Amino acid sequence: MARQIDHLSRSDDTYLVSEDSSALDIDSKKEDYGDGEIDAPAIFLCGKCRLPFGDSLSWAGSDDEQNQILLKRVNENIVVGKEPFVYGTNEEQRCLAVNLTCRGCSVKLGHMYMSTPKSLDYKRSIFCLMVENIESYVLGSSDQQVAAVDSEERPVTLEYMDNVERQMTKIKSLAVTIGQRLLEIEVDLQGKLRTT
């Protein structure tokens, strides 16, 4: 029947499934993200409150039938349930599992199998996350935009500052000249009004 194994440990702010668990492993680590042929790392977020909880560097596989992704490691934003329940409808596929919920909004993100039949041993003690309840963001994805600096929003340089200061000095000088001229006109008008 099923074996019960608990390989879940907590290290700093990350939950980690120990290496001797029967999880799917990534065939090879992908490290070169610049040439576009290899997938860049992805960040996984809660679909409701967008709280990040893991990344693709802890990828353990996926289950297309169940519409799940499998991670070996997540951070403290995933709350591992304490109450196990029986999961599965087919008697040969029944498992003992606990819920995985988001710390931010308490939405159910998936579950973790604590005890499995032999056919599901690869999922035991792995974070099984429901794709419909999560979002992902690929680092360096093409939908990112480069900050556009048009001619009117160019960076401030010393040369630009000198030019602005010269123009401000001219404007101040012109304002003083206009002010003096208006004062002279006012004095002249007051003198003319007194004589009449």
Results as ranks from 00 to 15, higher is better:
Cys105Met: 06
Ser56Val: 03
Asp150Met: 08
Ser21Thr: 10
Ala97Gln: 07
Val164Phe: 04
Gln145Tyr: 02
Asp32Leu: 08
Ile185Thr: 08
Ser115Val: 07
Gly54Asn: 07
Asp20Phe: 02
Leu71Val: 04
Ser18Phe: 00
Ser125Val: 01
Tyr87Leu: 15
Gly36Met: 03
Asn75Cys: 12
Ile178Trp: 05
Pro117Ser: 10
Ala42Lys: 15
Asn90Ile: 09
Val17Ile: 05
Met112Asp: 03
Arg3Pro: 00
Ser173Tyr: 00
Glu91Pro: 02
Leu189Met: 11
Glu184Trp: 02
Asp64Pro: 03
Lys172Leu: 12
Val146Glu: 13
Val156Trp: 12
Lys123Ala: 14
Ile171Tyr: 13
Val146Asp: 09
Asp6Glu: 11
Cys46Trp: 06
Val176Asp: 14
Ala23Ile: 05
Ile78Pro: 05
Leu109Ile: 06
Lys30Glu: 13
Lys48Asp: 08
Ile126Tyr: 01
Cys102Leu: 11
Asp143Tyr: 14
Lys30Met: 10
Asn163Gly: 08
Cys102Ala: 08
Leu182Val: 04
Pro84Gly: 00
Ile134Pro: 08
Val176Trp: 00
Gly47Thr: 06
Arg73Glu: 13
Glu83Leu: 09
Cys128Ile: 12
Asn99Cys: 03
Ser142Phe: 02
Arg3Lys: 13
Gly61Asp: 10
Val131Gly: 01
Asn77Trp: 03
Glu76Trp: 02
Ser56His: 05
Leu96Asn: 08
Arg124Leu: 04
Ala175Ser: 12
Tyr87Val: 02
Lys72Arg: 15
Lys172Cys: 06
Lys123Cys: 06
Ser22His: 13
Ser106Met: 05
Gly81Lys: 10
Ala42Arg: 14
Lys172Phe: 05
Asp64Lys: 15
Cys95Arg: 15
Leu71Ile: 03
Asp39Gly: 10
Asp6Met: 04
